[in-house]
Simulated assay, not measured.
Amino acid sequence: MTISEEQLFTLADDAGFRAAALATFRFQAAACAPYAEYLGLIGCDPASVGRVEEIPFLPVGLFKHREVYCGGTPPEAVFTSSTTGGGEPSRHPMRSLALYERAFTEAFRAFYGDPAGWSLYGLLPSYLERKGSSLVYMVDRLIAACGSGGFYLRDYDALLRDMAADPKPKILFGVSYALWELAERYAPELRDTVVMETGGMKGRREELPKAEFHRILCDAFGVGCVHSEYGMAELTSQAYSAGGGVFRTPGWMRVLTRDVNDPFDLHGPGVRGGLNVIDLANRWSCAFIQTEDVGTVFADGSFTVEGRIDRADIRGCNLLIQ
């Protein structure tokens, strides 16, 4: 059996994380049928795995074609990825919405403190507009925890009016192309505000290097840096960047890099490669995900995201306005 929820959210050191990861692997190698099948196909005997570095990572694309789930009971929700060009969406069964809510709330607290001290403004559609979006579900619940803020689609006048009248510290949480549109049309000076973007343009605007895009937003909004959130439908947890595109994870999440041509060859710190994510909050699916993103992981565990591996399908997790 995997570790308890309380153990999960109180992991205090690397040794504890490694023990929890191995316990989770042993459970999921037996209980998650697609993962067990994958391990068999690549010739991995779970009993022979004694270190975290030996754990195989499940290709994220399998969430499109198989039910990656070992919850035992029907899931409370199934989160889906957005798609571009009519592609098949990923499906992530969520056994417990309470677990998901605890994961994103604990992560938010770790990086930004008590949500009640903030107002959160989501430059995203309402969750009613895009059923199945884990991102919109998360922002909706965080807005409720903050007690102020709200969702905005393209009513930028109302957004800026409400933010200007709000005395609390604010987070403007938006998809990249919507933030760019706001910057171009209004160039408003945002006071006492953290600007946070959630990802790429996904075909809505030209793709710019992240540093260049952030400079555009900083100049338009009068802020010193742009924060970022890293997550996806196939994960339960999120990483955050407080500027400079360098992300940090909560205590139950780790990122590693691999060779882009040999998925079983892990890189050491500072070497660019494909990103593998260990998300121990994926208790009832698979905690070991081989993503289609490229980046660099540093010695302190922080990481950057530089783009996507060639030939990988474009994930539309931020294409929420359709």
Rank of each mutant, 00 (worst) to 15 (best):
G224Q: 12
V271R: 11
H227A: 06
L208D: 10
V260Q: 12
M201P: 01
P269V: 02
G251W: 03
G268A: 02
E234S: 06
F264E: 08
M163W: 01
P188E: 04
R161A: 15
G273K: 12
V271I: 13
V246W: 12
L208V: 07
L275T: 00
N282R: 05
V175G: 07
A211E: 10
W180N: 12
A211T: 14
V194T: 04
R283V: 04
E189K: 12
C225F: 10
G231T: 06
Y240N: 10
A242I: 04
R161N: 12
N261M: 09
Y186N: 04
S285D: 01
G243S: 07
V226P: 00
W284S: 06
R283C: 15
R204N: 11
V223A: 05
K202W: 10
T249Q: 08
W180R: 14
L235D: 05
F213S: 08
L190N: 04
F213P: 12
M253Q: 08
D279Q: 00
H227Q: 07
Y230K: 03
T236G: 07
W180S: 15
E229N: 10
A165Y: 09
A211N: 14
A281T: 02
R283K: 13
A287S: 13
G200K: 05
W252L: 00
A281H: 00
R283L: 15
C286Y: 06
E197I: 05
E197A: 02
R272K: 13
H267M: 10
E184G: 03
I171V: 15
G200A: 05
H227L: 01
F213A: 13
A178Y: 15
A183P: 11
T236F: 09
L172N: 08
H267Y: 11
H267D: 12
V255G: 05
F264H: 11
A287I: 04
R283I: 12
N276P: 02
I216N: 13
R283S: 14
A220R: 04
T291V: 01
V226F: 02
A242K: 15
A183D: 03
E234G: 06
D192L: 11
R258L: 13
L172M: 11
Y177L: 09
I278W: 07
F221A: 00
W284V: 05
Q238F: 10
V255C: 01
L280A: 07
W252N: 00
Y230T: 03
R185T: 14
A220K: 02
K202F: 02
I278G: 01
G268W: 03
D265M: 14
G199S: 07
D192C: 08
R185W: 09
D262M: 13
T291F: 03
V260G: 13
K210C: 12
A281C: 06
F288R: 10
S176D: 14
V195H: 01
V277N: 00
L256R: 09
T198E: 06
G251A: 14
R272S: 11
E212Q: 13
G199P: 02
K210S: 14
V194C: 10
P169K: 08
T236A: 11
R205Y: 15
V260E: 07
E197H: 06
M253Y: 08
C225N: 13
V195L: 00
A187K: 15
R204A: 13
T249W: 11
A178W: 15
F173V: 05
M163K: 03
V223H: 07
V246Q: 05
D192Y: 08
I278F: 02
I278A: 06
M196F: 03
D219H: 05
